[in-house]
Design a protein around this nucleic acid. Structure first.
Lengths: 92, 92
DNA sequence: TTAATATTTAGAAATTTGTCTAAATATCTA
DNA sequence: TAGATATTTAGACAAATTTCTAAATATTAA
């Protein structure tokens, strides 16, 4: 079910920015929030949507919650694009 | 400006279905509508959003309007995914 | 020109989404 | 245990989205 959820999740530019930030390494919720003008609860909401779409994972370390990319679903999304770009009848 | 528009456009499952249908060849608005339970004006609305995102092109042929895929923006979207999946420090 | 067909536009209604503030929960440290 | 810090949850609200029906536009054919 998370294929559609993932497409919806990446539709928001703030969430895409979060994913780009995480590309460079894991970050805590607070560190992520520092990169935005939004309030922290809003960032937390976006993180929740990314988590539900299986695009990120979280783990608690003391007071902090670290977020990291989960690349497995990205593969699925890319496959959809790849399939669209295949020409008709191209069996390769 | 159509990078974000394109991501929003593909967030809707009906619109992704339209794109998949067009992969197999150009179709008129009416032919596309036949594949959906929605009313035609709703399909027309989705086609408009895809067109504004530069994901499809249209051309009139008599009474019909044919829609076709425009793959150039797909390349840009895929690049974003590709970039996310690159490991940090991987300069290759 | 009139009627039929194909498609879009306009406008309304219901749902979803993104953001905020206030409050709750979890953890650490004194 | 009490206070400070990190984060999420709850609930409200405005804006955006999706769908519908009715009407408008464009084209063809009689």
């Amino acid at each position: 079910m998370s294929f559609n959820e993932a497409f919806k999740a990446i539709a928001d530019p703030n969430r895409r920015k979060i994913l780009s930030l995480l590309k460079k390494g894991d970050l805590t919720a607070g560190e992520i929030a520092e990169h935005f003008d939004m309030q922290k609860p809003s960032v937390s909401h976006h993180l929740k949507i990314l988590k539900q779409a299986d695009l990120v994972e979280d783990r608690r370390v003391g007071q902090h919650i670290y977020y990291s990319l989960n690349t497995t679903v990205f593969q699925d999304l890319m496959s959809w694009f790849y399939d669209i770009l295949q020409k008709e009848g191209d069996e390769s």
